[in-house]
Design a protein around this nucleic acid. Structure first.
Lengths: 125, 125
DNA sequence: AAAAAAAGTAAACCCAGGCTAACTTTTTCT
DNA sequence: AGAAAAAGTTAGCCTGGGTTTACTTTTTTT
């Protein structure tokens, strides 16, 4: 069974975020957002297409499939929870919280993410 | 200027831990501890030797240099702080706390690690 | 509608960090 | 001391995920 790498999760996530914001989602936009070259983005998107996580007509715009959106939302939710925790609980600056959340959202266990969620819910802020 | 990768930090850390425990520190021991093949360990150690972070006589035992120990301790300290936090504050199982700490200790910003340290010091447990 | 700019793609390369297979050196056991 | 086992090394390969260069297709501008 296919398993998303951190890098591919980043691509899904950014597609989701750009779409949410009503922005254009082309290779160039993705590449810019992830600070990566266009060919890198093209390659990654090709993989995601093969896995049926995104769809794209030739030279056309990029969309998440149902399944792709599910995966993207899962990552993005983790991201939000983590960055909120770092910022509000640990007092890390918003900027750093964003950066660190981006990095660890892909590798934290479910158990730890749940621990964070619980903390935010119970120890109400 | 040379910058340690996550993987190399793992090697330094495990050398430090094995030494601390008074265990033998050879390629085989390192490879076993990191669940990696012996050739992989050999290659990594060669890099660390070039960077003057470890010393080793031909076919001999492996030691951290002053500088290598400094780096190893820095990583290991982060590790301890993070795993304690996950376990005691977030209620994550010891095992998972260990695993997750291993993964994020290399990539968390100084600011976040400090945030965790402060939390542990101030919100005394 | 032609020219210029922007977007996307393809090919070929690089690097980190794994791996196996095969070899050498060292240690241990009989 | 010689044979067997263990430890270490070397060479060559693979994969993910980047890169640049050069190309094609599409869009925009004049």
């Amino acid at each position: 069974m296919f398993c998303l790498t951190s890098s591919l999760e980043d691509y899904l996530e950014i597609i989701y975020i750009l779409s949410e914001q009503g922005l254009k989602v082309g290779i160039t936009d993705i590449a810019k957002a992830l600070v990566v070259s266009k060919p890198s983005a093209t390659k990654a998107i090709k993989i995601l297409k093969n896995e049926n996580l995104v769809s794209q007509e030739k030279y056309g715009k990029i969309l998440l499939t149902k399944e792709g959106e599910k995966a993207a939302v899962a990552v993005y939710d983790k991201h939000k929870v983590i960055s909120k925790f770092l910022n509000k609980v640990l007092g890390v600056s918003e900027k750093t919280a964003e950066i660190d959340a981006c990095k660890i959202e892909h590798i934290l266990s479910k158990e730890t993410v749940n621990g964070i969620k619980n903390y935010l819910e119970n120890v109400k802020m």
